[in-house]
Design a protein around this nucleic acid. Sequence first.
DNA 1: TTGTACGCGTTATCAG
DNA 2: CTGATAACGCGTACAA
Lengths: 340, 340
Amino acid sequence: METPSPTNNPATIQDVADLAGVSIATVSRVVNGKSPVVAETAQRVMEAIRELNYVPRAAARILASKHTNTLGLIVPEISGEFFAPMLRGIEAAAGETGFDLLIHTTAYKKPEMRRHTLGEHNTDGLLVFIGSMELAELTRLESIGFPVVFLHQTAPEGLNIPVVTVENKKGAFLAVEHLIDMHQCRRIAYLSGPEGNEDSGWRERGYRLALEKYGIPFDPALVLPGDFSSKRAAQTVGEWLAGGLVFDAIFSGDDLAAVGAMSALREAGMRVPEDIKIIGFDDIPLARHLTPPLTTIHAPTEEVGRIATDLLVRLVRREAVEREILLPTELTIRQSCGCK
Amino acid sequence: METPSPTNNPATIQDVADLAGVSIATVSRVVNGKSPVVAETAQRVMEAIRELNYVPRAAARILASKHTNTLGLIVPEISGEFFAPMLRGIEAAAGETGFDLLIHTTAYKKPEMRRHTLGEHNTDGLLVFIGSMELAELTRLESIGFPVVFLHQTAPEGLNIPVVTVENKKGAFLAVEHLIDMHQCRRIAYLSGPEGNEDSGWRERGYRLALEKYGIPFDPALVLPGDFSSKRAAQTVGEWLAGGLVFDAIFSGDDLAAVGAMSALREAGMRVPEDIKIIGFDDIPLARHLTPPLTTIHAPTEEVGRIATDLLVRLVRREAVEREILLPTELTIRQSCGCK
DNA sequence: TTGTACGCGTTATCAG
DNA sequence: CTGATAACGCGTACAA
């Protein structure tokens, strides 16, 4: 290896210009490829760049150009199995379009540090996951025309913010209908998500709709509180079982909770699907490998991330975008529902 | 709400200074709290800040101060169940210490975009996960004294880069010893990770060590190729079973693969743990809820992230740090090994 | 304790 | 097509 740089400090655009015998403006041009430069000089500049190992300082760029080339992602907390695919989609799409990704979770910050950590001064646009940002801040961002896209959450009324999510209601309906229609279930419990969670709300509606269609009265006692985690689900189902609640099936608001429910059922000596049938939601990668393999509603989680990011990028570029994108969900039959 | 800002553009430090009737230097002082300011003027400045909704432009700050207040994280790809806890730890620690987090996965970038996307010009330090960065770049960073910390990977020789990982060998040893000592297993298969993966390498050594201790000859045929995913594990185990390989237990390099293995075993009509015993590695949140609950080596994944981040922050602050931190692993007995 | 003035490294606007 | 040069917004000696 040759000496990477004559001076000790990282090379600046000026160093490159000097070495190539041109002005910094020209260097900037060849770096950004915006305006035309004679091939020969461009050649010299590129060589100087390599020679000096020059990399433009991001900060200086941002300051001068007014955009950050960075997308922000705000989530309440990173909950593993569900979130990872979405993050993968986001990261992939961001990478492909040349944007960096700045991630913030709101769960671990001291309250006073939560404000303004992500916004117009360090990102070109924001991806906001379900209730992780205050309405006031959202309103402010919208008022200055800052690009924001919601993930799994429709915009509060009055705010014109696009959303990307999945067909929750339809998916839930399909699951419950399958339980009723194919497996003659009558007392189906719904294992819900966190209180106020929008996904869970829609899924409950789908659940009720299916009940209604088949003339089964809705029983509030069958709606079990949960938070989309295995732990809580195991606990809740265990308790309600001990409390004498009877049901013949569980429609779980998400797959992780379904795993917890199955675990509690097993502990209580009940068999899945013989005694209790169960269907989840999301279709996490593990679902097919569970014992028994989990019948679930497949949700294109990675796609959600990918599409939301593309949409945000278009927003950043001031292109027109859809106000709402609903990705399709579908019933993926395996064995926990009693099929096969 | 009152008008957030008199001018239409986001307020700058100058606007605040004008409104408060002080100089920008003073504003800078109260914002950064470095040098003393008379309480009363500070008060006025803070009001002006609120009034104008002033937020310092990150880019300008970086440019002027020479540090980014941002940590970079480089991973080959975001693989869900294992990675999420680590990310949680990293994010938490970064947040607590006031750093932002910039994430890059190398899997989705076009090759020509992989270089220099994260480095000294946009971060103060880098967290590098297992082989996701080229040696040349690493060498360069080290040569300019740029802070880097490795995750689950020891530094290539010659590079003085600290590493945070877990006691892979010891954990694996404990798992295999348990299988041999408590459950009289003699033919234990090792379901390995991706070729060349360092974690997997150490785990295999622990596996061999235990075999050795109990005088069981090492049989290369019992080392099954894998990549730490359920899918691949299910496939591999399925094939080898069909191929007539006989064994009485599986030590899986990680939990996800264990899930896949169990699934393949079930499909082949074998029972866990009656016919085949199995122990995993990592102790992902789901492990306890599997059927049967998975006996596994608990690895403090979130802690790894947290500690590595703290270490990196100390490096950024030019404090002295340990060269290697090995977090303890321990055997977590549930039922897949045959206990209970 | 406070203010002035310069520098940070780019981009963008104009002339040439 | 290329070169000066003025922003960009903030930190920070240095001076007062």
